[in-house]
Design a protein around this nucleic acid. Sequence first.
DNA 1: CCGCTCATGTAACAGGTTACATGATTTA
DNA 2: TAAATCATGTAACCTGTTACATGAGCGG
Lengths: 189, 189
Amino acid sequence: MALRHAVLAALLDGELSGYQLAKAFDVGVANFWYAQPQQLYAELTRLEKEGLVAGREVVQETRPNKRLFHVTDTGVAELEAFTAASAKPAFIRDDLLVKVQAADRVDTDALIAQLTDRARIAQAKIDLFGTLLCRLRGDRTEEDFLRHGDRIGPYLTCLRGVAFEQENRDWCVRTIDVLEERRQLHARH
Amino acid sequence: MALRHAVLAALLDGELSGYQLAKAFDVGVANFWYAQPQQLYAELTRLEKEGLVAGREVVQETRPNKRLFHVTDTGVAELEAFTAASAKPAFIRDDLLVKVQAADRVDTDALIAQLTDRARIAQAKIDLFGTLLCRLRGDRTEEDFLRHGDRIGPYLTCLRGVAFEQENRDWCVRTIDVLEERRQLHARH
DNA sequence: CCGCTCATGTAACAGGTTACATGATTTA
DNA sequence: TAAATCATGTAACCTGTTACATGAGCGG
């Protein structure tokens, strides 16, 4: 069960409702973990039952009531133990790469379209993460912030996200180039 | 069900036994998909039942007999359909990044050790993929191979793997630097 | 003789995905 | 008036992981 730790790590930045947490898992947290809202609601319930997070009801008038959760001391201890335990190597599972692996035997038109799309999405994420990084470090330089900032965890993971998406985009563009050039060469036959 | 397509794509390069396929999923295929041997044996059985791959028994004397599988025409058609369908965006799920997200609140010693380890593993993969790329392109230059080679799918995915692991390694090293510098600053208090 | 490679699986369990469900308010 | 946002879940299903199981040959 690993989602729980991602939730705990995400909640370190402050109280969040299930809904807000789901939003966080759509942007910044998506750098290191992906989860659907349903999973998060279920996980929050479990974590609360085990005392790793605590929630408080917030009554709203124009909106449905919500419950804001924060990490308890037990929760922090759990994160501590998790961090001390050795991490298993991360692995990639990407449909698009499977398709590229098969590129020699299948129609490349649809593939090029998907690579184009992926490159566009990657660029959007790069832009998003860029503004996120600016917001996190405020008016300090990156060096200064990383040396003296209070909360650098999210910044570091975001740096990783930017690098990942840049590489993602560049690889897509390169692959599109290769496939298109080959298509032209093939057409001349 | 996506493992099936990864298996089909991996089998495009030639007949493989379940055991050999497991080896492939440990090296080259690991660039785009990860799976355990048990999964592969089960998946091969299913794929054979559905006629997407076909196996033939190879009797061996000094070794246990094995069954070599290849993709059937139906299997290629399935891959074709899979490639045409739109890919959902890939996502990352990495324990180590969760730990870095929480880095401000937990002990960093164990974390630095894990980052060091990860950097080492990444470097090993870079080296491995480097030799793999050389083997795939033979004596041709990369440009030449990508333009005129028969089977560029595995090469392209491997390029992606190299870029990913380089970025991985660099980010680990950078993060270690940051955490160690902060530790020294903190120690002076 | 111990551990590695070849070679293939089963069974129980944990975890994740998809589909379904509800309902009020704000914005275009 | 249609769509998006806020807010929370349940249930069925699919997938993946962990543990267990077997057995022969080869190399140090």
